[in-house]
């Protein structure tokens, strides 16, 4: 009798728990839709708790699969070697050209007394997981906010831009790749200097949209970040223009997504912001208005005196 009662009570409690959990998940989904950043932070915290701990289980399988695919490539080692040698010869020619250009560049810079922007700092991380879903293109890095990674920073491999940091936890950060459908990057097409938007569409060659004159964008032109919007530093290589058979303009990504393992997160030091219009224009003009007329006649400066005195 008592047994039956407890089992009845347990069934009622269980029903309550089931209902509550279902409601909670539904509420979480609604919340994700309404207040996405907060829920994404919760997601990153959850992932930060679990995924690095699972790494020891993942590592052997990953290594094994890589060894197998490496072994496959050994089969064509002779061919590879030949190709590499030819490439090396071509590259040596380019290296010579680059060195000469660098020297002339340095000379010209010295002549012009150019101030270069401070070089970028970076932190290197290893990709621990990919997104695990065919609908989003992203990966998890093993560096996080403790290493100075912040949302919006650019991630590059040795060759080109990989994506953008979106979601940071203490020890992990998520990189949304350029191929993701939500990725849109302002770019400049070299050498014409046209501006455009690079729009990911789940392929390794994202669309180049909104260029000023699409007919003037030719295959082989280089695509670099423009730095517009202040998210990415300018002049990071993205890839090369290609045209698909249907005539769309696309950019073939330079980054090596096949063998993505180590990724640099660029920590661009924030540029000095110019706030306001400066003190030359504005109230200070109105203030010294009652000027003696003879001074004006003498041809002295009409503008207000420089606010901080002379530099010299």
């Amino acid at each position: 009798m008592a047994n039956e009662q407890t089992s009845n009570a347990w069934r009622a409690v269980r029903r309550l728990i089931v209902g509550l959990t279902l409601f909670l998940f539904f509420a979480l989904f609604i919340l994700w839709r309404v207040d996405s950043p907060r829920v994404e932070r919760f997601r990153m915290a959850l992932v930060d708790q679990f995924v690095p701990n699972m790494e020891w289980a993942l590592a052997p399988v990953t290594q094994f699969t890589r060894i197998v695919s490496d072994y496959k490539s050994y089969a064509q080692i002779y061919q590879r070697n030949q190709e590499l040698r030819q490439e090396l010869q071509r590259m040596k020619g380019w290296q010579e050209a680059a060195l000469q250009l660098e020297q002339t560049n340095a000379q010209l810079r010295a002549l012009n007394n150019v101030q270069l922007s401070p070089s970028l700092g970076f932190v290197t991380g290893e990709m621990i997981t990919d997104s695990g879903s065919p609908f989003s293109q992203s990966g998890l890095l093993n560096v996080g906010s403790l290493d100075g990674v912040v949302d919006g920073q650019a991630a590059v491999d040795g060759l080109g831009l990989v994506g953008r940091i979106s979601g940071v936890a203490d020890h992990t950060a998520r990189v949304v790749f350029l191929s993701d459908v939500s990725s849109q990057v302002p770019v400049i097409i070299r050498p014409t200097g046209q501006r455009a938007i690079l729009h990911g569409d789940n392929t390794l060659a994202p669309l180049v949209l909104f260029s000023e004159d699409p007919d003037d964008v030719l295959p082989g032109m280089r695509v670099v970040t423009s730095g517009d919007g202040g998210v990415f530093p300018p002049e990071i290589l993205i890839g090369q223009i290609v045209r698909s058979s249907s005539g769309e303009v696309r950019a073939l990504l330079a980054a090596d997504f096949e063998g993505l393992e180590f990724v640099r997160v660029l920590r661009n030091s924030p540029l000095d912001q110019i706030i306001g219009a400066g003190e030359l224009v504005g109230d200070n003009i109105a203030a010294p208005a009652p000027m003696p007329e003879n001074e004006l006649l003498e041809g002295e400066a009409i503008a207000a005196p420089p606010p901080r005195g002379d530099d010299h």
Binding site: A57, T129, D130, S133, P134, F177, E258, L260
Partner: peptide, 21 residues
């Protein structure tokens, strides 16, 4: 269950063209 969550996360391929897991 943990393994079946972890399996699609294996960092083997970052290229987008692939069949869903």
């Amino acid at each position: 269950g943990l393994l079946s969550i972890a399996y699609p996360l294996l960092p083997l391929q970052f290229t987008p063209v692939r069949i869903p897991t």
